[in-house]
Amino acid sequence: PAHPYDRLKTTSTDPVSDIDVTRREAYLSSEEFKEKFGMTKEAFYKLPKWKQNKFKMAVQLF
């Protein structure tokens, strides 16, 4: 299930529990994912792991 970005980011005051914290981005809706990352999930997962992590750090999901 998708969760709002505000509850997934590492600085959230009301974090979602029971998620894989190493894959926070996977819980974003497709729309919100595209808004935050500027690309689709499919394109994101084709990137090298280090680049994925760099993007995730930039949007507080790492």
Rank of each mutant, 00 (worst) to 15 (best):
D20H: 07
L28A: 01
F55G: 00
F44V: 00
F33Y: 02
A58D: 11
P48C: 03
E31W: 11
E25T: 04
P4T: 03
N53L: 12
S29K: 03
F44Y: 01
K51Y: 10
D20S: 03
S17T: 14
V16G: 03
Y27E: 02
A58I: 12
A26D: 09
Y45W: 06
P4L: 11
E25V: 07
M39G: 00
Q52L: 01
V59M: 13
T13G: 04
Q52G: 00
M39K: 00
K9F: 07
F55H: 10
K34L: 15
A2V: 15
P48Y: 01
S30H: 13
F33I: 02
F62I: 15
V59T: 07
W50D: 09
F55Y: 13
D14Y: 12
S30Q: 12
K56S: 02
K36N: 02
K54Y: 12
D20G: 11
F37A: 01
Q52I: 01
H3D: 06
V59P: 00
K46V: 10
R24D: 02
F62H: 15
V16L: 08
T22I: 10
S17F: 14
K36H: 11
D20Q: 03
Y45P: 00
A43M: 13
T11Y: 04
F55L: 15
K54C: 15
P48I: 01
E25D: 04
P1H: 12
L28K: 02
K56M: 09
A58V: 09
S17H: 14
A58W: 14
A2F: 15
L47T: 00
F55T: 06
W50Q: 02
D6P: 08
V16M: 06
A58T: 09
A26L: 07
F62G: 15
T13N: 12
I19E: 05
E31K: 10
Q52W: 01
T22Q: 11
K46Q: 12
A26H: 08
A2R: 14
R23V: 05
K46L: 14
D14R: 03
W50L: 02
N53G: 03
Q60H: 12
K41A: 08
F33M: 01
K54W: 14
D18R: 08
V59R: 06
V59L: 15
T40L: 06
A2N: 15
S30R: 12
Q52C: 01
K54H: 09
L47E: 01
F55I: 11
P48E: 02
T13F: 07
F33P: 01
E25W: 03
P15A: 04
A26R: 06
L28Q: 02
L47Q: 02
H3F: 15
Y27M: 05
S30D: 15
H3V: 10
M57P: 00
R23E: 04
E42M: 10
D6M: 00
L8D: 04
A2D: 13
I19H: 04
P15H: 08
Y5V: 06
E31C: 10
K9D: 08
H3E: 07
R24F: 10
V16C: 09
T11G: 10
S12A: 12
E32M: 05
P15C: 11
L61A: 09
P1A: 11
E25C: 12
V16A: 08
G38T: 04
A43K: 12
L61R: 06
T10Q: 06
M39R: 01
V16P: 07
R23T: 09
F33W: 01
K56N: 03
Y5I: 11
A58Y: 11
K54P: 01
P1T: 12
T22Y: 07
T11W: 02
I19G: 05
H3P: 07
T22E: 08
F62L: 15
F37S: 01
K51G: 00
W50A: 05
L8T: 03
F37V: 02
T11I: 07
I19R: 03
L61I: 06
